[in-house]
Design a protein around this nucleic acid. Structure first.
Lengths: 193, 193
DNA sequence: CGCGACGTTGATTTGCCTCAACGATTGTGG
DNA sequence: CCACAATCGTTGAGGCAAATCAACGTCGCG
């Protein structure tokens, strides 16, 4: 198994010795997922946080009219889960599915709690991860409330160029809060790639 | 000085011994703020995270048309700062002002870093704080994208009844992403309190 | 090869905004 | 402590960004 990516990711914020590394990787479960597989279903317990080695995942939920709302995407070297269900040990309020064939590591909530105890430095790592997620989400909220759809789309393509390559238009539309039809119109307006 | 509230708040997630408590409170600066005072200004360095003992604060920014956008509110026992500016030690991208006469404690970034070193358990505390903030913000995004203004308003009043008592309508409007005029219309529609 | 999903295009509708005007409350300086 | 100005919430008319509804070409996949 190749732990290089995930260890490099952790290493961005904390340093670990050999023993700690071994313990950490012993908690990881490797998983291959083919395209369009649900790995978390609304209403089910959310036991895992997922680290994407390769591929693309998407978290989404349904609104009361049954329309899908994309909550986040995760490609190489992103963490993804239903954070609410995961940390509060409640039923998931969102779905997570693969957009492509993907390779991930899963870390179980119970194991993460053990990890916090044995290697408290992981508290720092996940504090920083949560901080950054919070900051990102706050910025997103601000953009939704203050910017028209066209600018939101261009900010998105600029900020996440890799997402644009991996993620179908309709999912990006539901992430930005517009219909695929309207996003199609927006695209046409400025520079046709 | 009365540290009861803030210690109780910290105590919700971690336990501290006497020495740790003394060290922690030694890092806090007490501050009385009169109504309508800016305690953080966009463009300035954001050195403090603030804990509200009593009163009400608001974080907001301006969009490109110069309109205010309320990012968050904080009344008794809430933490508030420009989280981006604070953790990345960058210039603030938002303003924080008092809505009422308020009493707060301030904790400086440099002191928080020392606190993390001396009492690593605070990593856990702020991890949980960041987690909850992330979850809250994610839910907010979802509501903005899927619910019409009227439902967003009713969710808000239900979730934060205390905010409704302290915070003027126009700020709630800009938090929900509607104009004060339209929120006024919404209010009239259902139950006239 | 044929079906279903995807992106596109156009016509119509709508939720919310803008602009404008008006009482009621707040707060402020004389 | 009063008078006047400023701010706040409200109401109404008209307008716009984006949604909805519908139809069509294209492409990937079984």
């Amino acid at each position: 198994m190749n732990y290089e990516n995930i260890l490099k990711n952790v290493g961005k914020h904390i340093s670990l010795d050999k023993i700690e590394i071994d313990y950490f990787v012993s908690l990881l479960t490797h998983k291959e997922i083919s395209k369009n597989k649900l790995i978390l279903k609304e209403g089910q317990p959310c036991r895992y946080i997922n680290y994407v080695i390769k591929g693309a995942l998407r978290a989404y939920s349904f609104d009361m009219k049954g329309k899908e709302n994309s909550i986040m995407f995760a490609i190489d070297d992103w963490w993804i889960t239903d954070i609410h269900g995961f940390v509060k040990e409640k039923a998931a309020i969102m779905n997570v599915e693969s957009i492509e064939d993907s390779t991930i590591f899963q870390l179980q909530k119970t194991d993460l709690d053990k990890l916090y105890d044995k290697v408290p430095r992981f508290e720092k790592f996940f504090r920083i991860l949560m901080q950054n997620s919070y900051i990102r989400e706050q910025l997103r909220t601000r953009q939704i409330l203050t910017e028209p759809a066209e600018e939101r789309y261009h900010s998105f393509t600029k900020k996440y160029p890799l997402f644009v390559q991996h993620i179908p238009l309709k999912f990006i539309a539901s992430y930005l809060g517009v219909t695929p039809q309207f996003l199609s119109v927006i695209r046409k307006r400025k520079g046709h790639n």
